[in-house]
């Protein structure tokens, strides 16, 4: 009886760990909510300044929000519980609503190699064409066009093909709308409201602050192929390619499953020659 604190401490440690492990088991039980094989374009190797101090390996989910402004409008914001009364844009309102509306948790739908990706490709092709017409008039314009062309080509060859296409509060409703678990991932995310000035009016738009669970740990038995990869030639977020002059190409494929709690786990890693 005298050492009751000791037993309480043990009980707490065991109960908390049991609850966590049960949650993990529940997430992975049954058929997964989604299963996709992505490449280095969508899952970039996480690196830091203290690599030698950390032997663990993780991948970061990279996705695009290029067309979000078109569909993440006032109706969607209202659906998520944001105050969407018209924005006048005066100082007091900006002071109150601009600063003070905090992000909310919602669920994002990410589409892989779907219509949004096709639209993105068409848009970038048009941008490439506009760089050729009219032809650059001087050396400075030529240089600018060249760097723009390289940036767009790198995005098309090495950029992520995952696009945010919808958002909602109930992941089950979203799955009913996007039933294809081989193409659509549903993940918890933080969303914010942004006032946007369009001509003379202020419009409220939503955007994603971050995706929760966007960092994927690689277990030791799957990490071996990734450990052999050199740092050079690595694709990074923003597509700044490490080896200028070389065509960027993804170096691995990773199969990921998302479970009942929309938490991911890696089930396979394979090296590839290029895409």
């Amino acid at each position: 009886m005298k050492r009751i604190h000791l037993w309480l401490a043990f009980a707490l440690l065991i109960v908390v760990n049991t609850v966590i492990l049960a949650g993990i088991a529940r997430n992975r039980a049954g058929s997964p909510d989604a299963e996709l094989t992505l490449t280095e374009r969508e899952l970039v190797l996480q690196t830091g300044n203290f690599r030698e101090e950390n032997s663990g390996l993780a991948l970061l989910l990279d996705w695009k929000n290029d067309f979000v402004a078109e569909w993440f409008d006032t109706d969607k914001l209202a659906e998520l519980g944001f105050d969407v009364t018209p924005w006048k844009g005066d100082e007091a309102e900006s002071d109150y609503r601009g600063w003070r509306t905090l992000p909310k948790k919602a669920f994002i739908v990410l589409e892989y190699e779907g219509k949004a990706w096709e639209r993105f490709q068409r848009k970038k092709d048009e941008e490439l064409a506009s760089l050729r017409e009219p032809p650059p008039r001087n050396e400075a314009e030529e240089k600018h066009a060249e760097s723009e062309r390289a940036r767009i080509e790198n995005e098309l060859l090495a950029g992520s093909r995952l696009f945010a296409v919808d958002v909602g509060l109930d992941p089950r409703n979203l799955r009913a709308l996007y039933p294809d678990g081989d193409r659509y991932i549903i993940l918890p995310a933080l969303v914010r409201i942004y006032p946007q000035r369009e001509k003379t009016e202020w419009n409220l738009r939503g955007n994603f602050e971050t995706v929760l669970g966007g960092s994927l740990h690689i277990p030791r038995d799957l990490a071996a192929p990734l450990m052999t990869l050199p740092n050079r030639g690595r694709l990074t977020r923003g597509y700044d390619y490490f080896e200028p002059g070389k065509v960027p190409a993804p170096r691995y494929r990773v199969t990921v499953r998302w479970g009942r709690r929309y938490e991911p786990w890696v089930v396979g890693v394979r090296l590839i020659g290029g895409e």
């Binding site: 908390v16 966590i20 669970g213």
Partner: peptide
């Protein structure tokens, strides 16, 4: 214990 379990199993914080 808890923070690394979160990382290993990609648990939402």
């Amino acid at each position: 214990n808890l923070s690394v379990l979160g990382v290993i199993f990609n648990i939402t914080p």
